[in-house]
Design a protein around this nucleic acid. Structure first.
Lengths: 200, 200
DNA sequence: TCTAAACCTTGCATAGTCTGCAATTTTTGC
DNA sequence: GCAAAAATTGCAGACTATGCAAGGTTTAGA
């Protein structure tokens, strides 16, 4: 995990550009900001901007935290009840997001009105979801079940962010708790009439 | 539901443009197709193309079937067990999609590689999900629970299409059955250790 | 049937996005 | 220090998307 000077700079400049993008987007909306303005504010040429991100939407999204290997492994070999392990998985991820609250909020703003940004993030999330489903598959031994669980996990993250953005004095963590309890209730409702048609 | 000549033409031209877009996209990938080509193939001017859709990705997506009022009402006042009502809701929607299999398949292709298209569809789905959550809220009396259920429903649609695209001899309906059974299993797993921390 | 209003289509001009290329500068490893 | 590797930059050019204004078509009502 040691970074060469080059790698470190690259990372810093990338972050710099993301912040410039988001700040400008907060003022006028991303659609009304030009790549020229972003580049100028970031202190690089327009051409260089495109060396860092393929488009301004990607610059706004930046590089969200990914699920870590440790998180995955904990799930695969998990000892506790599945629900508890998943909740812990989510807690870890939400903690990572909490360290960048400002960025999360601004990115959320962009996502409201920009289709392309939404698509980019959705693509990243979808990849993460796939990896998570793969890991869960080792635990529950059924691909569709794993997929559904992975769906619920990533949806919970999105829902928690949404709730946190809209309720004033809430932390991301407490928003997750609320979402999670709703998710468990939903699961209970769905499984209460179990043997009706579970395996068609 | 009677359409004036004007409305009918508009609808036909819109569909025409979507099909032209998708066919060209199948050949070379949407990114390698210009709006000029699409317009030419659709028999309208480039300028008119942009009167129908704001960009080529939107043209590729077109106007997917929405949840109908009847579907919603059935859920709101539903009599059976919730899971059964939701499954029926899904069956209806999947039936609507089945009538456009060719388009569904081509759109799916575009979504693979085009972020903007993904974002546009995600936006539409997200709106539908919100409406559905609203309806479910009347039934389960808790917003987060309703949101989670709505998430599972729209995810199931996506998962069913994905499964159908990847397994050769499958119908959309049978793909949904497989997905649904996985979803119920997941719900069961999540709710099996119920009283641990459901309400934190 | 005729007509004015509403609506559509189109071409043109223009701002903005994004890529390839080649010249220049910076960083790296030795 | 120095040559190789990598990053930055300007420029040219294809493509996307919108405003505007000039015409053409449809609609509704007298």
């Amino acid at each position: 995990m040691t970074l060469s000077l080059r790698e470190k700079r690259r990372q810093e400049t990338g972050l710099q550009i993301q912040k410039a993008t988001l700040e400008l987007a907060m003022k006028s909306g991303l659609d009304n900001v030009t790549t020229d303005e972003i580049a100028a504010k970031s202190g690089v040429s327009t051409r260089t901007f495109f060396n860092y991100y393929p488009n301004k939407e990607a610059a706004a999204i930046g590089h969200p935290p990914r699920f870590t290997q440790a998180q995955m492994d904990a799930l695969r070999v998990g000892s506790g009840p599945l629900a508890a392990d998943l909740k812990q998985f989510l807690d870890i991820h939400i903690a990572a997001l909490s360290e960048r609250e400002d960025i999360v909020r601004m990115v959320g703003n962009v996502l409201r009105s920009n289709d392309k940004a939404r698509g980019i993030l959705e693509g990243l999330l979808s990849a993460e979801r796939g990896v998570l489903a793969e890991a869960l598959c080792a635990r529950v031994n059924d691909r569709q079940t794993a997929t559904s669980l992975a769906n619920n996990v990533t949806s919970a993250i999105r829902a928690a962010i949404l709730l946190w953005r809209q309720e004033e004095g809430m932390t991301l963590g407490s928003a997750l708790d609320v979402v999670w309890s709703g998710l468990l209730d939903a699961a209970l409702l769905l499984s209460s009439t179990q043997n009706n048609e579970a395996k068609s």
